[in-house]
Simulated scan of single mutants.
Amino acid sequence: MTRATPPAVPEVGDELFSTECHLGRAELIAYAAASGDHNPIHWSDRIAAEVGLPGVLAHGMLTMGQAASAVTDWAGDPARVVEIGARFAAPVVVPDPEGVRLVVSGSAKAVEGGRVTVALTVTTPGAGPKPVLGRATAVVDLEETTR
């Protein structure tokens, strides 16, 4: 298997990437099928309203997965991502039919040898500046590996 060439080792504070994705109801339903999480707050406006939510919500792990995909795209190889974590800070409301735009950006928080700690920011621009993931970081090993 040929591995992608890793990006250059950045300096602390460098902006590494910024990417956007669209989440609509079709993506929520596909994720529910893949994950087995069929909670109706992820597809039914009526149920979401009945339980006091502002609308249908994206699955937290779907949001986290979008952040992880952005990191692996930047790293060039998923095997280079050795750690990723976050806390769910705000819900991602997915209106129908327009859906929502999710923006994921990363900057170098720490660099030690070939390991980069990436500070992640994940937002939905229409919902204000508050990130939807808090304390979101990933550790990426940019040194050549034989994994």
Rank of each mutant, 00 (worst) to 15 (best):
T2E: 10
T2I: 10
T2L: 12
A4Y: 05
T5S: 13
T5R: 13
P6T: 12
P7L: 10
P10S: 10
P10I: 07
E11T: 11
E11Q: 09
G13F: 10
D14K: 09
E15F: 04
L16A: 04
F17A: 06
F17E: 05
S18G: 07
E20G: 09
L23I: 15
G24M: 06
G24L: 03
R25L: 15
A26S: 13
A26E: 14
E27D: 15
E27H: 12
L28Q: 12
L28P: 12
Y31I: 14
Y31N: 15
A32P: 11
A32F: 14
A34D: 15
S35T: 12
S35I: 11
G36R: 06
G36N: 08
G36D: 13
H38N: 09
H38W: 14
H38I: 09
N39F: 10
I41H: 15
I41M: 15
G52T: 08
G52K: 10
L53D: 08
P54M: 03
L57E: 03
M61H: 15
M61T: 11
G65N: 11
A68V: 12
S69H: 14
A70L: 10
T72H: 06
D73T: 15
D73A: 14
A75C: 13
G76C: 10
P78K: 02
P78G: 04
A79F: 08
R80M: 04
V82L: 02
G85S: 03
A86E: 01
F88E: 05
A89C: 07
A90H: 08
V93F: 00
V94L: 02
D96P: 00
G99N: 03
G99R: 02
V100N: 01
V100S: 07
R101F: 01
L102M: 01
L102H: 00
V103M: 02
S105N: 03
G106V: 05
S107V: 01
A108L: 10
V111P: 02
E112V: 14
G113V: 03
G114Q: 05
G114M: 01
R115P: 01
R115V: 02
R115I: 00
V116S: 06
L120K: 01
V122I: 02
T123V: 15
T123C: 04
T124Y: 05
P125D: 08
G126R: 06
G126F: 00
A127T: 01
A127Y: 00
A127H: 00
G128H: 07
P129W: 03
K130Y: 00
R135I: 00
R135Y: 04
R135N: 12
A138T: 00
A138E: 00
V139Y: 01
L142M: 04
L142Q: 05
E144P: 09
R147H: 04
